[in-house]
């Protein structure tokens, strides 16, 4: 069974994004970039499926600038087998990403796509669902457990109110939530090995997909700042302040 894992290079989750003074976007110059944390969880899950003998090949794909190659290398160091980099200097919208991924799926014919539930830059939480819809494959989003058996997968999902378990026919698209697993750190030998793994270089044009933006960014602004309030000395003082504020 072949598993495809789409990964995105994003601002590191420890970095607080700053809006550019000219309001055209977020300042990413000299900012630490990393693999989207949810994508890391997806890679880990795919590698575990391989270690369990369920998956035979784990293919990593990323759409992004040339540096997204590093993100793919990280995934290969974690245990991915080979990569595909589709270079694009524009940060494509989820619709365009989903269409490109659908084209990759048509070429690669995986039995399963495991990906992140959300990229922490755009916070869209959309590509997985859209890819599933475009492919006509079942979807199981926000997974906290995946059990593949034969031609189906049982997926436990984190939903409002608790957990839901679905059984989906393969091929399917599954998106990872935080509790699915804890991604490993790549070992030095595996990082060295990953340098020799193949990464195919593609362009958006290779897939003949229309990626023209549908959304025009008018401006990007900073949200209203919340100013720090006061420190209270005692719990009684706190209660009296809350009473005065009328929130009890």
């Amino acid at each position: 069974m072949k598993v495809l894992v789409p990964v995105k290079r994003v601002i590191d989750y420890n970095v607080k994004a700053r809006v550019k003074a000219d309001q055209t976007g977020v300042d990413l110059a000299n900012v630490k970039m990393s693999m989207n944390p949810f994508c890391e969880i997806a890679v880990e899950e795919a590698v575990r499926l391989k270690e369990k003998g369920v998956a035979t090949e784990v293919v990593i794909v990323s759409i992004g600038p040339a540096q997204a190659q590093e993100t793919i290398r990280t995934a290969l160091a974690m245990g991915g087998d080979r990569g595909i980099l589709i270079t694009s200097d524009a940060d494509l919208e989820p619709l365009a990403v989903a269409k490109l991924l659908a084209a990759v799926v048509a070429e690669e014919n995986p039995n399963l796509v495991v990906m992140g539930k959300q990229a922490i830059d755009g916070d869209n939480n959309a590509v997985g669902q859209m890819l599933s819809a475009l492919l006509g494959w079942p979807q199981a989003t926000y997974a906290s457990a995946i059990e593949v058996s034969g031609s189906t997968a049982k997926v436990t999902r984190e939903v409002d109110g608790g957990l839901q378990t679905l059984d989906v026919d393969l091929p399917a698209v599954i998106t990872a939530d935080l509790r699915l697993n804890e991604p490993r750190y790549a070992s030095l030998p595996n990082i060295m090995k990953a340098k020799k793994k193949e990464i195919a270089s593609k362009t958006v044009a290779d897939y003949g997909v229309d990626v023209a933006p549908r959304l025009k960014v008018i401006k990007v602004t900073e949200p209203a700042k919340r100013s720090a309030g006061i420190k209270v000395e005692t719990a009684a003082d706190l209660v009296s302040k809350l009473n005065t504020a009328g929130v009890l």
Partner: peptide, 16 residues
Amino acid sequence: RPIYAGNALETIQSSD
């Protein structure tokens, strides 16, 4: 809409 964990607000116009 908020982006980057709410550290930025994006105003977008849809052509769809």
